[in-house]
Structures are given as C-alpha cells and as structure tokens.
Design a protein around this nucleic acid. Structure first.
Length: 509
RNA sequence: GAAGGCGUAGCUCAGUCGGUAGAGCAACGGACUUUUAAUCCGUAGGUCGAGGGUUCGAGUCCCUCCGCCUUCACCA
C-alpha cells in the first residue's frame, strides 16, 4: 500500500479504535425499524419543536460541516426515486428522467442533545461511515429539512477515503473498477441500476401473467448452438470433456416445447467470445420465450406489448430521449418487410442476384464464393440498419440466413422471421420456429457457402434433432437483448453502463 | 486484432518553450451551537501508469510495455 493512502487508513484505524474504546462496535449490527430518507422527507417539516415527528434513519455520511459544539452531517440511503422533468423550448414535449437526489438528508448533531458518548462518537466520524440516527424531524433556521439527532448508532467504518464530496468520481475506468463507489457517489448510476431491475421485473410479471413458465436451462453446453457466435470453451475435470458456455438459450427451450411446456421463457446470461464495444459485452443477458401454436406475427404483437409495458413501468411516458433522438414507443409500431427496405435503401431488388452481386462488387465487398443471401445481408447492414430509428419490425428474411426458422409456405426463399430495430440497434429477433426435423437436419448439414462453421447458426446438434423428431408444436419464439433494451430506455450510450460489472482486463500485479 | 487519444496527491484537475511538483476538496492540529461546496489559522500529503533512451537537466521529447477510451474488424 502506498504511503499516502496508508496514512489515510492509519488515521481512520485510530478512529476505529477510539470507537471501540467507547464500548461501541465499529462494524455495527442489526438496526431495526428505520425509515427510508425519502419517507422521512415526506413528513411535515414545519411543526414547532415538541410536536416534531420522531424518526429513525440509517445511511452513509456523504458530507459534513463541523462547528464547535454542533455538527451537521448529510446522510444518504438508497430510497430516492426517479422523477421526470418536462423539457421546454426546442424539444418541447420531451421528457427527461432525472435522478431524484432526495435520498439525502441533513442531520444535526448537537453536543447537549446526543449525550457524552454520542458527542465523543461524533468526533470520530468520517466521510463514508455508516450511521444510524434517532431524532426529531423538522427544519433549521435556514429552512433545511433536518433530523435533530438525540441518539447516534454507529453502523460501520469506512477505512478508505471516499471520492471528493463535491467533485465526485468521474474517471470512467475508476468508476467501472470500483462500481460500489460509483453507486454511492453518482446518483444516475444507482438510478440506472434501479431502472434495469424495474424493466426485468416488468418482463417477468408480464410473462407470468400470461401463463408463461420461467425455467432455467444449462449454461454449460456440449454443443454451442442457437446463434452464430464464437463460444467460450471450458473443461469439466471429472468427465474429462470440453464444454462450451452457452451462446443462446434457444435449443433447450425448444426441447421444453417438445416436452409440453407450452409457454416458456428464460432470462439468463449468455456468453460470446467476441470483441468488446459500446454495444457488446462478452457476457450479456437475453430473454428468450417460446409459445406453442403461435407464429412470428403473434410474436410481433407480444413484443410490442411487452416493451410498451416496460416503457410504462418507468413512468416517463411513451416518448423517451436517446442521445440526439426522441424515440416514440406509442403503438402500433411500423412493420416493414426486409425486401422493401432493402430495395428502398440499396436500390436493387434483393431477389435479383446479379444486381446484388454488382452492387457488392462496386462497394468492394468480397463476393467470391459467397452466397447471395450473405451479400444481401451485408448490404442490408451497411445501408439499412442505421437508418432504422424505429421502433420498426423488419420481417420476412432471406431464408439462408435463418436455419432455425420456418419458411413461408408459398415461398421457401423467405423465412418467417423478424427483427425489431430501434435506433439502428437490433433489439429483438423472432421467428416462426422450424419444427420439421427433416428440414432442420438439412439446414444444419447445409453450410452456407463462404461461411466458416463458427460463423454459422447451423451447428449440428443431434440431441436437439432427436427431440424434434418426437414432435414439437408449431410455435413462435422471441429473443430480446435485455442490456440493449435497458440502454434504450435509460438513454445510456454504452452497454458498460447498464451492466454493473462489465468485463475489464484485470489490473496487473 | 489495427489506428488514434488519454494516464500528475485519496478525489477533481492545472502544469507555458525541457529549468525547484501545483490548486480546490479530502486528511491532520487548533477556534466556533443553526451550518449547507461552512469559515478562519496552521501542518502534512507525489515512483507524474511502468521501464528504458536523448539531454547539464524530462511530468514535458523519443522508444517499449501496461491500462482505459474512441473508431474499425468480429458480433447481438
């Protein structure tokens, strides 16, 4: 430990021992019956002394103003609730969510009021310590809502100094490596975490109410299927086999459809051994659901309802800002076919193989040995995706891109699949599930020309095929990226901020 | 994986042309019973990300390495 930090810690250790010498536990203990600071702040504050409500609060000391015989502390807990502010002027009508700072409250500690031990304890308090306070709630002469303490209960020492009370904690790397400090000192971080929880709760409640069963399926897979991604590899010692961390939830959930669980979902972590970017973390959270006897149109309706429910749960109305954009989630959302979007933005029909190849050549895309569908999709990603402000359902995909999807009965070149785009991001992916084991086996065997196996969704999974052979009901299925949904609904530009502990390279030593 | 940018006290940041390492807050000692970025007096706090090089002299210029950010590639 370096000298200066050591001296900070030494000073605080001395105070810890002084607290022990008072007969108090410097690490605190059970503290029953305290009210949240938000609750206390809602109490009447203007009552005359003597009629003030008794309160008991607990929290962290985040600011301190010492006088000779009276100290003022600011205590903070987690009870602040998000509030909303209407934006005036140019962006009239927009709503911006702002973290409510009301989970801070001032405490007055007077020498006479807290008694001998209390006053000696007050001398040993540091920024960052945890403290319980009993007292009366009212206002100071300056009108500040305040708990006038008559009893202090020490609840925990902070041996290391916290970030500056005014300047706070801004360094991004520091915030990510010490997320606990970020949560304490940046209200928007706690607020974002709270909103994420609320979104996930809403999804669970929504699906539970509609009769879906939430299940848990294995994270360790013998075959990493269900998506096109490089897996992480791990090893099981007792069985002496390599296993993959799952890259999707799909194949196990479909096995459950075969097993008669007619509406099923899972919210869980998946792992993809690929690059890190503002939109990609190696582990992220997916929600996948499957509904027997549905199809991709029923999934579109469900997706729209589900996300609208999440938007409502945040309480900020149907129009949410995202960066420079204002996203309008008011249903119904646009629904456009892949083919029409392709033609509009690329300028040729996706069914015209020669024209597609010409455009790809002109733009310098490698075309040799590539399937036309692959070129089509490259052009789609290049020219269409970032124009999809949305929310917009893009449906009817080129079949070769979709090995797990049922083809249209009247046109086997088209798969019954949609993706939901918002702000150029793929947020959800859904299809009419392929339940025909014979076709499924063919698509597994048929490697897309020019695609290495690891980039293909078509990974042979014999056990899954055997399950299909026992009869899977026709079904609609949906995959939803939870992290990206949270990004969009909380106006957060990077995935690192919606994941509490994103992957960072370990610190050296 | 590639290119560009950044890294100075516990935190937030200055640091000119290469010439003694700085401020605010936090900390430590002292004064003060209604403060609120409290104030006042005083003290202490640094391997300038790490290592090497150029130079009389490097936080500053050069090289290598580490970490983070951005863009690209891969991908959702």
């Amino acid at each position: 430990m370096s000298a200066p930090q050591g001296s900070f810690e030494a000073a605080r250790l001395e105070k810890l021992h002084a607290i022990e010498a008072l007969g108090l536990d410097p690490w605190g203990g059970r503290f029953d019956g305290h009210q949240s600071i938000t609750t206390v702040l809602a109490l009447p504050a203007d009552l005359p002394e003597g009629q003030r409500p008794r309160v008991r609060i607990a929290g962290r000391i985040v600011s301190r103003r010492e006088g000779g015989k009276v100290h003022f502390l600011d205590l903070k807990d987690w009870s602040g609730t998000p509030t909303f502010r209407e934006i005036k002027g140019e962006r009239e009508g927009e709503v911006e969510k702002i973290p409510d700072l009301s989970s801070r409250i001032q405490v007055m500690v007077g020498q006479k009021q807290v008694g001998e031990t209390g006053w000696q304890l007050a001398q040993q308090l540091d920024l960052g310590d945890l403290l319980g306070v009993d007292g009366a709630f009212g206002k100071t002469k300056r009108g500040e809502p305040t708990v006038f303490a008559d009893q202090l209960t020490f609840l925990g020492k902070s041996l290391l100094p916290h970030p500056d009370k005014f300047a706070g904690l801004h360094d991004l790397e520091h915030r990510l490596r010490h997320r606990y400090l970020d949560l304490v000192h940046n209200p928007e971080t706690l607020d974002r975490a709270r909103k994420r929880i609320r979104i996930v709760q809403t999804i669970r409640r929504f699906l539970d109410e509609r009769g879906f069963w939430e299940v848990e399926t294995p994270t360790l897979h013998a075959v990493a299927g269900g998506a096109a991604a490089r897996p992480f590899i791990t090893h099981h010692n007792a069985l002496d086999i390599d296993l993959y961390l799952r890259i999707a939830l799909e194949l196990h959930l479909k096995r459950l459809l075969v097993g008669g669980i007619e509406k099923v979902y899972e919210i869980g972590r998946v792992f993809r051994n690929e690059g890190i970017s503002p939109r990609h973390n190696p582990e992220f959270t997916m929600m996948e659901l499957y509904q027997a006897y549905g199809d991709y149109h029923s999934m579109m309706d469900l997706t729209e309802e589900l996300i609208v429910a999440c938007v409502q749960a945040l309480g900020g109305g149907m129009k949410l800002p995202y960066g420079e954009h204002l996203l309008d989630f008011t249903p119904p959302w646009q629904r456009q076919t892949y083919a029409e979007l392709f033609e509009r933005h690329v300028g040729v029909s996706m069914h015209d193989a020669d024209a597609v190849r010409q455009v790809a050549d002109r733009e310098g895309l490698p075309t040799a040995g590539k399937d036309t569908a692959v070129l089509v999709h490259h052009l789609f990603e290049e020219h269409v995706e970032d124009k999809l402000l949305g929310p917009v359902f893009v449906y009817d995909y080129p079949a070769p891109l979709c090995p797990l999807t049922k083809r249209k009965r009247d046109n086997p070149a088209i798969a019954e699949r949609f993706e939901l785009y918002i702000c150029g991001m793929e947020l959800a992916n859904a299809y009419t599930e392929l339940n025909d084991p014979l076709t499924q086996e063919q698509t597994f065997r048929m490697q897309l020309a020019g695609l290495p196996e690891e980039e293909s969704m078509a990974k042979m999974d014999e056990d899954f095929l055997r399950a299909l052979r026992h009869g899977m009901p026709p079904a609609g299925g949906l995959g939803l990226g939870i992290d990206r949904l949270v990004m969009l609904l909380t106006n957060t530009p990077t995935i690192r901020e919606v994941i509490l502990f994103p992957l960072l390279r370990p610190e050296k030593k």
